[in-house]
Simulated scan of single mutants.
Amino acid sequence: MLSVVGTPIGNLGDFSPRAAAAFRAADLICCEDTRVTAKLLAHLGISKPLMRCDENTIAARAPELIGRMLGGERIAFASDAGMPSVSDPGQVLVDAAREADVPVEVLPGPSACVTALVASGIPCEHFFFEGFLPRKHGDRVRRLAALAPVPGALIFYESPHRVIASLEALSEVLPRRMVAVCRELTKLHEEVIRGTAAEVGEILAARTEIKGEIAIVVAPPAADEQGLPTTAAPTADPEAALARDIEEALDAGESASAIAKRLAQRHSIKRRIVYERVLAAQRRRG
């Protein structure tokens, strides 16, 4: 069995008894960083073999791990904080386990994106989680422009070193929207700063140093920004959305198999169908 274990995003008191039981039952714990997980295990009084499975190694190690589980071992997987696969490694191993008919259990735990959304005070009836924005300013602006029509709150993860740059891009593309920068959630120095992107950016720029894990929540578009009544939403064209996502992924240099795997989940379409469309898009590009 594969146990996917959600871990605390800050406060160790948020680790569930069921998750601790999964660690105790595991023959091996795979993790993003063995040093981080070792500290969590020490807090719990658990001693287990650890294997590093970060984004650079998990795909290569998946066949060995699947073989061990088919041989009867229980393997737990945890990222450094929050839910694996949500802007963290894990999906490759879950996919491999599903394809090999290895049982998969998910032990829910804290998630920074949902915690930030609730803490922000921004309307959260509908929301879209983007993860990390592109590193380059032009790419960041283009991505934000593409997300602007989404009829819900936008959630981003950001590093303390790039948060001001991201706020500058937000102030350029979405200058009127309410923004909440949520820092160090569930930790001693938890902080939520609200205002326009320019206002929040000015507050942070005045500091000598910015520390901690950061999530940015952006308010949904106002009715006049959408050009629609408040009860209406843009008409969605699933085919066009899939084609657009494929083109963006190809522009980013993503492999055909990786695109198919990711977009099949996003659009609830069979991976084979998405893969064929990716190949067709590649052929059109020459």
Rank of each mutant, 00 (worst) to 15 (best):
T186P: 03
V104C: 06
S120F: 00
V173H: 01
A169E: 01
V94I: 14
F156T: 04
D139N: 14
I193F: 03
D88P: 08
V181K: 04
L204P: 01
L188Q: 14
M83W: 00
G82N: 10
H137W: 09
H161N: 14
L185S: 10
L107P: 00
P103D: 06
S166M: 13
I122T: 03
S111M: 02
A78K: 05
E191N: 11
P160C: 11
I164A: 14
V192A: 11
R176A: 15
L188Y: 11
L144M: 09
V94T: 10
A165N: 15
L133M: 10
A112I: 01
E172V: 11
R142W: 01
E199R: 02
S166T: 15
V104H: 05
V179H: 01
L154Q: 06
E184A: 12
L185Q: 07
R162G: 09
G121C: 04
I122F: 04
C124T: 01
L107R: 06
A148H: 10
V102F: 05
H161I: 11
L188N: 11
E73P: 05
V163N: 03
V150G: 04
C182T: 02
A169H: 03
R135L: 07
E105F: 03
P123T: 10
G195T: 07
P160H: 12
D95M: 07
P103M: 07
F127W: 08
P175A: 15
L147K: 06
F129W: 05
I75Y: 06
S159M: 12
H161M: 14
K136C: 03
E202R: 07
